[in-house]
Design a protein around this nucleic acid. Structure first.
Lengths: 215, 215
DNA sequence: GCTATTTGACGACAAGCGTCATCAGAAATA
DNA sequence: TATTTCTGATGACGCTTGTCGTCAAATAGC
């Protein structure tokens, strides 16, 4: 009994690419173009026409992949932050067995700030996402919450006496994350004057002393 | 010998107001309208037409007072921050004679967060100013620097062994300010869920433990 | 090789923007 | 009272934006 050998794919191959491959490639081109433009001239100055010119595509394919420049911004932010968060978590996991608090904290912070040495990524993730819309604001807020939870989980591992579910401890962790993120934002805005090492050690002292006071 | 009795004022009185009075009143009306609109629908969604409607004036008087909506934003930001900074400095000065570190820090933080319980002010000062233009970015950066210097000056008073002009101490202070500002921003974005007291005590612990580790 | 699909280039359209000009009426000056 | 200045309302302009339609060339499937 004959069956359709391939899962139904809308459209046909063109230029050696299947329809879904083409869509994915176009999406990637727009993601790259968006990071370039949002991170240089800014989100509000970026138009669909500019995005298409930068991506080397035409507007039809933009609207096939995104409904809106806001949706593109959300996709870029989520992708960038997902990758950075994964890198930080990997660095933490690698340093955790040592048991050395200083080493663990430094490893996480160094990975974090290293990622934001890319000025375009930094600008999009700390400047351009703010104040765009309630939806983007929610994305940003949730991400800060994720980093806060990450910090709390590390603190609970390192410090047995860390308060388990205190409301205040949560806000302290969030303020610590705020210190780190604001450092990154200010690092960008000041043109990366200070070397990364200074940022890392300053924030490491902040984390260490506060966690010591609580743990 | 006859002299002109009044300093030359361009224009004449109208509606019981002198020309400069009228200009000042219009400027204030636009500042208020801008705070209302920038703080609710956002800076990029605010147009000159909307500003005029909100202010109850016509565009001619907008252009007499401001060249641009960006200039209005800068004026609103500067005015708001000037007032808040003055309030914080007054609270610090009032608490300084006590010599009680905890009390001084708490007084400053409480005044700070109290100011940003106004959601419109908070939104303009922490969300809307970011990523608008290099000029506005510079305004924001300088303001953060001012608060950082304020923190350092207080720390030097309270802690005799605080490192005088260490580059790292400067970045630590800035990270602390970042923690405070990010707390304020997140407070707004989370809909002011937590009471102010929690924000104050959490940030007070942050400041106290870190300054203790350095002083 | 024929036909249907996909592509890129180009133009058009309505809507919204900042900005300016006009014009009748209100208010102050002479 | 007559003249000048100021005010508010309205409309128009040039420009840019998002969005869609058209059309010839390129490519795939039969």
């Amino acid at each position: 009994m004959p069956t359709s050998p391939e899962p139904i794919e809308p459209g046909r191959t063109y230029g050696g690419e299947t329809a879904t491959d083409r869509l994915a490639r176009q999406r990637r081109q727009f993601l790259d173009a968006g990071l370039t433009l949002f991170g240089s001239i800014g989100y509000r100055a970026t138009t669909v026409r500019l995005l298409c010119k930068q991506a080397g595509l035409i507007d039809r394919y933009f609207y096939k992949n995104f409904s809106d420049t806001e949706e593109l911004l959300a996709a870029i932010y989520t992708e960038s932050m997902d990758q950075i968060q994964a890198e930080v978590m990997a660095a933490l996991a690698a340093a955790l067995p040592s048991g050395d608090t200083e080493q663990i904290v430094t490893a996480g912070l160094d990975t974090f700030f290293k990622a934001f040495e890319n000025a375009r990524v930094a600008r999009v993730c700390w400047l351009e996402v703010l104040g765009v819309s309630p939806r983007i604001d929610a994305l940003y807020t949730r991400r800060i919450e994720q980093f806060t939870e990450l910090l709390i989980s590390v603190a609970q591992r390192l410090l047995p006496r860390w308060p388990a579910s205190s409301d205040e401890a949560h806000y302290i962790a969030m303020a610590l994350i705020g210190g780190v993120t604001q450092s990154a934002a200010h690092w960008l805005l000041s043109g990366y004057r200070a070397p990364r090492k200074v940022l890392v050690t300053a924030n490491a002292l902040l984390l260490r002393s506060t966690m010591g006071a609580l743990g």
